[in-house]
Design a protein around this nucleic acid. Structure first.
Lengths: 273, 273
DNA sequence: TAGTGGTCTAGACCACAAT
DNA sequence: TTGTGGTCTAGACCACTAT
């Protein structure tokens, strides 16, 4: 990947063998191109609705094959930054420029304010019998021992969310109070315990605060709160965590961005569009 | 794509040129394989945690190149049905079998109960000045004329959700009461108006029902309801619709399934895992 | 060392869009 | 007819896993 904008990229690829001759050792070419293009788009260097260079041009420009260019472009399309029109070209989405700051890189950490200067108070860490719902999620017998963590998150001094995590004891043992204070459970599962995560399921509903929730969130009993049940699965599909979260409805709303996955697929039957 | 399970597939590809000699004309090979594998997985023919044939085997078996096999597998991985381990193989997710019925094919229609025997009462169809929030979403000046549709959805005779759609007049004109009674707005936008949709953004919060909402949903004032703001964008990234939805909290909860997109990407730095 | 997925190339033909 | 993305092939080498 030669080319100026690479920011120190230099040659990065000389003769024939696949890797490269320089810095970027082991960073896939399609991934490098993906990042180059993403930063151009998010940086406003390529404006919404503008056309990107053709696959062939990118291929020549960065000295990589068209297949590799396509791999990079496909990623950006599924990310919602680009759209393509057969016979016309590849274009930048209008939405692209706005989103740059949010960019949920594919996962949920953002929802859980990892990093945001939230004060976390650990209220409880103990073993309890699994409630039915939790047992169902984790696929263990109801009543079986399980580790429960209760935390209260505050932002700017005011309570924000009350989080109850349930994990199997083997996982619970490896987590200490300091961990809970400084990281989300998702972070701990992935980074500290090395469990690659897969699907996460959220069930969001509106309910009245009960006494416990109200007092912790510093609101009146019966005030509406946003309640979320979460099920976390490993990449292999094993259930690893169940979570109950109560949000103060004046301080939080649940945001989801549904990005059309890939092309349409379905309409093989050809419609007008 | 030879192979028995194809269900009448036959040869589907004889000598060299790309298309095929038979039925499947124009259906991409990777897509055919994708469907074959998906149905085997969802049909339980390949069980969770079981290993799929290797890329090479699939390549030989279906007489397609490894690259094409990979394209099919990549789609199923990003769909959450498969996971892969370098050096080991491709495996079926535990979650795969369960999900078969739900399978949000990538979009939201399921959330809006298209098809479910919901009675829809059209309460209003008229032009109004755009409220600030809506104008912001649609990127038009506040107060500019806009079409507003109000509908009440009931299931089993009891109110379920109160939906207010806002679209620009050009779109609004093309929609009649019958449309609104029988289809979701998303359906109409895509199918009737031929607008390919892209990203959808949801903001979900908990709030107290005001008088209008309470009376329509047949609940008490101040009861908690689930309130959702929606922004719908076309594939090109233009905002096409804004929606406010109020759900009875005892009859609905918002469900999201976040599927890890593709591989990990980030951890190029190599971690243990 | 062998097996498997991960990355990449070079080149081919097709389908759609614009001229 | 030309340009552009869509699909596909055949083969190469690498990195990780297991033996």
């Amino acid at each position: 990947m030669g080319k100026a904008e690479n920011g120190g990229g230099r040659e990065g690829r000389g003769g024939r063998q696949s890797a490269s001759t320089f810095p970027n050792r082991s960073i896939p070419l399609y991934y490098q191109l993906e990042n180059i293009l993403r930063s151009k788009i998010e940086g406003g260097e390529v404006l919404p609705n503008h056309k990107l260079p053709t696959e062939q041009e990118l291929s020549r420009e960065y000295k990589i094959s068209r297949a590799t260019v396509r791999q990079a472009l496909a990623a950006l399309v599924s990310e919602g930054l680009l759209y393509r029109k057969q016979g016309k070209g590849t274009f930048v989405t209008e939405k692209a420029a706005q989103t740059k700051s949010v960019k949920l890189t594919g996962f949920t950490e953002d929802l859980f304010t990892e990093g945001v200067k939230a004060e976390v108070r650990v209220i409880e860490m103990r073993a309890v019998p699994a409630p039915e719902r939790v047992a169902g999620v984790l696929r263990i017998p109801t009543g079986e021992e399980i580790t429960r963590f209760k935390r209260l998150r505050s932002v700017d001094g005011a309570p924000f969310s009350y989080v109850i995590n349930y994990v199997v004891p083997e996982i619970g043992q490896k987590i200490n109070e300091k961990d809970l204070q400084h990281h989300t459970m998702l972070h701990l599962l992935e980074e500290k315990l090395g469990i690659p995560l897969g699907t996460i399921r959220h069930f969001v509903e509106s309910m009245k605060a009960d006494v416990e929730v109200a007092s912790l969130l510093a609101i009146s009993v019966f005030e509406p709160v946003l309640y979320m049940e979460t099920a976390v699965y490993s990449a292999e599909g094993r259930a690893v965590e169940a979570v109950d979260t109560y949000f103060r409805s004046d301080r939080y709303r649940y945001t989801v961005e549904l990005i059309r996955s890939q092309q349409l697929r379905k309409d093989r039957g050809k419609r007008t569009r």
